[in-house]
Every structure is written in C-alpha cells, then in structure tokens.
Amino acid sequence: MNDRTESLLLALPGLLLLVLAFFMPIGQMLILSVSGPDGVTLSHFVRFLSDPFYLGILWRTVRLSLVITIICAAIGFPLAYIMARVGPKLRLWLVVMVILPLMTSVVVRTFGWMVLLSRSGMIPEMLRDMGLVGRSFALMQTEAAIVIGMVQVLLPFMTLSILGVITRIDGRLEEAARTMGCSFLQSFRTVVLPLALPGIVAGSLLCFTLSASSFVTPNLLGGTRIQVLAASIYKSVTQTPDWPFAAAQAVILFAGILLVLVPYIKMTGPKDG
C-alpha cells in the first residue's frame, strides 16, 4: 500500500461524513426547492422574489447581519489589539472573559437579554429613570434587541479571529512607525490596521454568515413581528407546512451567503510574491 492510498483511507471517514451530513441534505434541499406538483418548477422562487413581504425579510436579514458585523468589528478590533499587547497573564483573563459567553447555551443567554431588555427590565427602566426616553419606550421585539443580542453572541468569533493575526504582528513595526513620525493613532491606522486586515475579513465573514443564518436569538428577541429569513424558513416548515417553499428560501439564503464569500476570498487570496 503506497502513501497515497494510505492517506486516502485515512481521509475516508471524514469524507463519508461530509457527504452524508453536508452534501446529501444540501442536494436534497436543492431538489426540493424546484419540485412542484407537476415536475420541475421555479414557482417557489418566483413567489418569494415577487412578494414584498418576503423581500422585506431578506433585506432585513442582510441589513441586520451587516450592522451586527460592523459593530462586532468596531468593538473586536481594538479589543483584540489590547489583548495582543498586554502581558500574558492579563491576556489569558481577557480571552476567558471573551469566550465565556460561548460556554452558556444560546437559549439561556437570550433569555438573559429578554429579562434585561423587557419593558420592566433593567435597561429600559434605567433609561426611563434618567429621562433619556419616554414612557412608551421598548427594546424588546425591536431590531435593536436583535443587534444587541447577536453582537454579544458573535463578538468572540470576531475578536479571536483578529487576535490571532495581531499577535503575529511584530511590535517593533509600531515602534519603527513611531520613530518615523507617527502618533500612536497614526501607527494604529497605517501599520496595525492594514496588517490585521486578513483577521478582520475572516472575523467579518464568520459574523456575517452566522448572523444571516441565526434563528434562536432573532426569534426570541425580535418576536414574531420582526422576522428574519431563518425564522421565515422555520415558519414555512412548521406552520404552513410548505416544504418546497422552505427549501427555496433556504437556497436563497445559501446563495446569498456564497455571494458575500466570493469577494472576501478574492480579497484575502494569495497575492503576488
């Protein structure tokens, strides 16, 4: 047995799992999305794309995912920089703090937010007491609630992606920039930011895909009135139930995420040299 067949054998269980657990369901979904009562049909796609209600859901999903990704990057990049530049002991504690939310279940975390954000919850109450908002102010069942909840869930992914890249940036590059006339902020912008870009891109990708396909948090914090695509798919399956239409929506979500991936991969792909 030569090395090639040996490594093929070693890869076989993983490949089988991938085929069984990933390609088969996706293929099934693709077939389902174009199957009608009398053979192949695109009617499910037409129905989705011609209905303003569903287009609104699609637009909301994309818009919220973008906002969540941008906020995660805006918080995650400075946080990752600080984590990379402090001593190893403090860094360990910061890493633990950042990944701590990942160690509790999404449902538990989201219920925590529901308690905090509800009409009589701590945050609206505090804002009302400070006179910053009116009596009718609510946070639950708004897009803001979804963004808050999702940023908390996704921040670790962004922070850790960027942290990995920043720790590999030689600190002397910043010192060199300082001796060449950069203020701290200028060296941050001209040296750290461009060199950390691959990490920011990778983190944004993770955040965008995860938030575009997330279901539990938007559903619980946004309520039934503010639907995202994943929730709409769920509803089509459980309430109507219209499996082909659910499959068509899933394909649209899948294709949308792939569309975002392409330019990112091009951007971070191998460069000259």
Binding site: E175, A176, R178
Partner: peptide, 28 residues
C-alpha cells in the same frame, strides 16, 4: 514621544513595513 523628536532609528530586525513596497517604506 518619539514622533515629536527629530530622530530616525534602524532596528536590528529592520522593521520594514511588510504591506508597503520598498519605495513606500523609504517614503514613510
């Protein structure tokens, strides 16, 4: 701070900025 002193420093590791070309490094 270093940027307010009219100095230039050459590092043991050279500390060239990897995302800039040679001439952009020198122009920095």
């Amino acid at each position: 701070p270093p940027e307010k002193r009219d100095i230039a420093m050459m590092f043991q590791s050279y500390a060239l900025l990897p995302h800039l070309s040679v001439s952009e490094n020198v122009r920095f």
